[in-house]
């Protein structure tokens, strides 16, 4: 019974995607869109497969992934660290809170020109932009999770002889883990988006750069390929994080 409901859900979910591809193909087949503007889906797919085997394209993927992971990793360390500190210490909180309040709604991409001027056109400016964008969701959800930890959990650990300085890592961080990981997931998707955009705005390699080069020469097929690649990367990374999450949070209710 449950299996059947699930199957019908999956079928329903595939429907709009299949429909989209069908309309896409139909637009070309019936001559509404010239192939120069909208290449047929089969052609895009073939090109994607061929490009994934292409050494140059693989290097572009590698460049994008390197910036993505470097930025995301720094954002996680900073975000979790500052978030925990702000939850644990009223003094840190008093300083961090207003600064975060000002910086969180700031459109970070506007800082990109300044980062280019200060850090140059290489990896550093792009990684910094990724950090700036991914940091806040991670910081905020860590802070939120850490300040919501049940008081009696902390008391139980203290009574069992946990010294005060260990409480933060032995109780607060693990108890805030669901919230921290939610923040990380948001941060990861943002990292994907931001690294791609930064590469589009100015770069000499990476997936975003592939898209811009194709756009300059009006090669529509090559514009779709990097876009699909970055979405696939996003989905795969998201899936990996989801798997990590269900492993780390196996004890928590309703993962």
């Amino acid at each position: 019974m449950k299996g059947r409901v699930l199957t019908s859900d999956v079928l329903l979910g595939i429907a709009p995607i299949a429909l989209m591809i069908a309309v896409w193909q139909a637009l070309i087949s019936f001559g509404y869109a010239p192939a120069t503007l909208l290449p047929p889906p089969g052609q895009v797919f073939m090109r994607l497969v061929r490009q994934l085997g292409n050494n140059e394209y693989q290097q572009d993927i590698a460049a994008t992934l390197f910036r993505l992971f470097a930025g995301f990793a720094i954002a996680v360390v900073l975000g979790v660290g500052i978030g925990l500190a702000a939850a644990a210490s009223p003094a840190v909180n008093a300083v961090v809170r207003p600064i975060v309040r000002v910086l969180a709604p700031l459109p970070k991409v506007a800082l990109y020109p300044a980062l280019l001027l200060l850090l140059g056109f290489g990896h550093e400016s792009k990684i910094t932009l990724v950090v700036a964008d991914a940091l806040f969701p991670i910081l905020l959800s860590t802070y939120y999770g850490a300040s919501m930890v049940e008081q009696k959990l902390i008391w139980s650990a203290m009574a069992a002889g946990t010294p005060p300085r260990q409480i933060l890592f032995k109780v607060v961080l693990p108890a805030a883990m669901p919230s921290v990981l939610t923040g990380c997931r948001i941060g990861l998707v943002i990292s994907c988006i931001v690294v791609f955009l930064a590469e589009m705005i100015t770069s000499t390699d990476g997936l975003g750069h592939v898209l811009v080069t194709a756009a300059r020469t009006f090669r529509a097929v090559d514009m779709f390929v990097p876009l699909i690649t970055i979405s696939l990367l996003g989905l795969i990374l998201n899936g990996l994080l989801q798997w990590l999450r269900s492993y780390l949070l196996r004890g928590f209710p309703e993962v």
């Binding site: 049940e150 009696k152 139980s156 009574a159 109780v171 949070l249 004890g251 928590f252």
Partner: peptide, 14 residues
């Protein structure tokens, strides 16, 4: 002095 709370306060990750 060991507490036992109404809310159990067990560590969910253990």
């Amino acid at each position: 002095r060991g507490p036992v709370f109404q809310e159990f306060a067990l560590f969910p990750w253990k």
